[in-house]
Amino acid sequence: MFHVKISLFSKTKSLESKIDIFHDKIIDVAMTFKKAIRVYLNEQRSHEYKKLNKQIKQIEHDADSIRRDIESRLYEHNLIPDLRADVLNLVENLDKIINKFDEVAYRFYIERPDFPAEYHMRMLELCDQVTDCCENTAIASRAFFRDISSVRDYSQKVYFIEHETDLSSGHMKEAIFDSDLPLANKLQLSNLITEVADIADIAEDCIDELLIFTIKRDI
């Protein structure tokens, strides 16, 4: 009769860990992606790359099921009614980052782009920036749940790195189009570079919303 729900503590504890695991998945997928691109640039579509690509797919699949679980539990147990919509939105936006990593890695697998060696360093630098951006997004989002005062700090880092990503991808595209590569190759590389840089854009969009949610979360 009395829905004081002391048992809520056990429910929230398990959901807290689900949310933590979901954030771990973002960092996992970012690190795996970075490793996969390094392997691809060195070995093209090797067995190792296929393995990493499969690993990314698995992380994306796991993240999807965790997201669904979080969403249904939030509704089933009527948790955080005032911020539930924001949390669901946040989780869905973060999931878009994971999906994008999977999508880009798969495009490399399907399209097998030919990256000349002189662009390898720049590509790796771009990937570093993108993964760094997403890691900071995950940390900022984690902070939203525990320590809202540090959300702003990590968000600022994301904005800075995203800007760097835009610059890097722009310079790289310029260099590619200045080269003697065939146009089809140039377009393919440019397209893939845009796709990689887009991951940081999605992270930035996440942070934009996260900052609004943080204002609402403040008492």
């Binding site: 004081v4 929230t12 949310i19 955080i80 911020l83 749940f145 320590d147 005062s149 008492i219």
Partner: peptide
């Protein structure tokens, strides 16, 4: 109370979900 609660929440770093449970119990 507002100033005190804000200060405590800032330093206690309670998870949003746990805070939700505490708030429910507090409200009751």
């Amino acid at each position: 109370l507002y100033i005190l609660t804000r200060y405590l929440l800032k330093h206690a770093k309670i998870h949003l979900l746990r805070l939700d449970s505490y708030t429910r119990i507090g409200l009751i």
